[in-house]
Structures are given as C-alpha cells and as structure tokens.
Write a protein that binds this DNA or RNA. Structure first.
Lengths: 206, 206
DNA sequence: AGTCAAACGGACGGGGTGTTCCGTTACGTT
DNA sequence: AACGTAACGGAACACCCCGTCCGTTTGACT
C-alpha cells in the first residue's frame, strides 16, 4: 500500500520517496512514459521494490509525478481568466499549455490520454471546464471564431503532442510556431501576424 | 535473406508472402506499428519463421507494407501539382495527406519518423521536395503566406499524427477539421471559411 | 548499547517481443 | 511414383518489462 502522506515516515524512507519522485519527473518529462520502473529505481539508487513500496503501481507514480504539472495547468488557465482582454487570456492559455506540453513529453501524453478512468481525466476536465468561460467571453469580445469549440483546443493539444524532435529545445521552438499557427486559425477575423521562427526539422536539406 | 523479387518462388511461398503483406498492411494501419510479428504470422496462418524468411527484419516488412502508401503520397502531390490553381492544389495535398495519415496510424508514424537512416526517409523527402514547386507557385499566386516553409507542412503532419481517437472514423473527422484549421493558418490573407463539423472527443461532457 | 519494527534490495515468477534453429512437410520436376 | 530441395512451423534463445517475496539492513527510541 502507498505510504500515507500524513503518516510519519522514517527519514531514509522519506528521502528515498522524494528522490524517486524527482528522478521520475525528469525521466518521464525527457524520455516519455515508457521509462521502466527499474531504470527509475536504478537512477534513484534504490531497488525496484522500494519504488513499489512508495507507489502502488506505475500509474500511481505517474499520477504523483505529474500532480504539480496538473496544478500548473490550472494556474495557467486562472491566469488567462484573470486577463483583462479575454482574447489575450485565451492566447496566453494556448501558448503556455502547448509550451508546457512540449517541454514534458510524459505530461503531454497523460494530459491528452483518452482513458476516462484515468486519474488525470478528472483534473484535466476540471481545468478545461474552467476554460469554457474564457472561451465564451473571447467569442463575445469578437476575436475568437464563433464555431470554435473546446474540443478544438483538445485537438490542438493532441496535435501539439505529435510534434517530435531531437531535443526539447527544438521541440519547444516547433511548438511555439505551431501554437502561433493554431491561434491564427482560431481567429474570427484573422489579421496575419508574424510567426515565431521556423524550425529546421531533419528533412530535406533543400 | 529476403527472397528476390525476380526469383521464381514456389507457389505456396508466393501465396504466403502476399497474404502476410496484406495482413501486415491491415494490422499496421488499424493498430499501429507495434503489432507483434508473431501476431501477423498467426493471422496469416503461418509460423513466425515464415515471416522472417520473406522479410529479413520487421522494418523490412514495414517498408514493403507501406510502399504503396508511399507512392500514393507521391500521386497526391502530383495531383496537386497538376491543379490549375496552385493554392487549390496545395490545399488538396494538405487535406489528402492528412486524411491518409488519419486512416493509417502505422503509415503516419513511419512517414514522420525522424530517423534519417530510415528506409522511408528518402522516399518521403523526394515527395516533399516535389512540393517545393507547388509551394513557390502558391506563394506567388498570393494565397499562401510568404513566411510559410516546407517544414511547416511537416510540422502539421506530425501534429496530425498526434490526434488520437477511439475509432478510425472519429480520427478521420477530427483530422478533417484539423486540416481545415491548419489551412486557415497558412493563408496570407485569411478569409474565414466554415469548418468541417467539430468532433466530440471523450472529454468534458459540458 | 540494545532492541524491534520499518524499510530495503536482490532474486524470482509470469508475460511479452524480435529473431533463429532445426527437424518436418510438400511443391515441382523427372 | 519417386525424389531432392525449397519452404515450413513449433520450439528455443536472448532480452526486456511489471510486480512480488523474503532474508537482510538500518533508523529510531529506550
């Protein structure tokens, strides 16, 4: 059973727990969700059993590892809601969410995972529902196209997750340009705006 | 070693080879690249060794299975090049490529795979290079934004691959809407156009 | 220092995958 | 019909994964 948060842990246990979480966050962010538990244990300097003593299953570890990312998403949405101009707030949310997802492969994946039973679905849906108000206001204010639906943002986020690159830096750059393009497409009366720099993907050198 | 194409195969061998290819194409298209070779062998009614006798490695099987999809891509681009209006041609290419990728998870994945050594990279790059002319003409004609680069299409295709859904139908519908959005964002002087219907993704029911 | 339960980690079982070995089958030719 | 070989397929190999068991270590408290 997962150790209770309220329960006093032995000092070594508490240290191990936090070290495992830190290692897991980094590993999942940079390498994706399929990093083996054993590998996380190895990098944490513990045995595999110790990881399982602290986290019932791999999904439990994922849930805890991404908890702060999840709340960071909520924070971004709240920031967007607080903006004076709803369209600016909406843009900010799109840009920030996509950047977060670009910098954390693992989180991006679980955020858009389709499994409704997932531990993340509830939090994600709450975050997205908060956005509904911002969307409504951005439509009323004019700049957001009327036929935009929340699912379009989900679509854009899933699409953003599809962007792969050799390094987090390149992926972030590609994601920035992608976000700018998507925002263009969400505008009711688009005024062409300059885009972030294009990225050089490992394709035709021509 | 993979059986030579020119070499006369025994009738049963030839039958098996084509059955394996057909099964592999369907499996990779509907279930993705990680369908086990064993499973493909089982569905083909042969042993695993028989698959390996016809295809040196799994990647070789992938290459051959997606060969016709690869040429279909070239055909789409040529169709686009042949269009009288380069912008219409460009739109057609984007829409058709994205639809193809939405209907074939496996092909989508290998087409945008970053491994330059990949057997697909050469064909893909040749196809993309053909597009350069269409892009240039679409820019000169006016509708395509001047700061568009070919990498943006690759970006869009990778993004399209990120769209996941429960069924191929839903994925295709989502992809259609996504393609329309991307095309909007590629326009130099966007005139808001109606979008294909929104998709109901398994998220907030609100 | 002594004690004891909490915490640990190496080894294990069960399952999966790509690929190969080798004894068996069956096609095609005489 | 007989025969040689191309082709076959089940079993095996090597590797990796998740999750658990159990004998050993170690922190905390007296």
């Amino acid at each position: 059973m997962t150790a209770q948060v309220g329960t006093r842990l032995r000092s070594d246990a508490r240290d191990n727990r936090e070290r495992i979480l830190a290692v897991a966050r980094l590993a999942f962010a940079t390498e994706g969700l399929d990093v083996p538990i054993r590998e996380i244990a190895r990098r944490s300097g513990v045995g595999a059993a110790t990881v399982y003593r602290h986290f019932e299953t791999k999904e439990a570890l994922l849930a805890e590892a991404f908890a702060e990312q999840m709340t960071a998403c909520s924070a971004v949405v709240e920031e967007g809601l607080a903006a004076a101009d709803p369209w600016l707030g909406f843009r900010l949310v799109v840009e920030r969410l996509m950047e977060m997802h670009a910098l954390d492969r693992g989180f991006a994946r679980v955020f858009t995972s389709q499994v409704s039973q997932s531990v993340f679905a509830a939090d994600r849906d709450r975050t997205l529902r908060m956005l509904l108000d911002l969307v409504r206001r951005a439509k009323e204010a004019g700049p957001l196209r009327r036929d935009f639906v929340l699912e379009d943002l989900v679509l854009a986020l899933m699409a953003n997750d599809g962007i792969r690159a050799e390094s987090p830096e390149i992926r972030a750059a590609a994601s920035r340009r992608f976000a700018a393009l998507m925002i263009q497409s969400f505008m009711a009366d688009p005024v062409p705006a300059p885009l972030p720099p294009a990225v050089r993907l490992p394709l035709t050198r021509g």
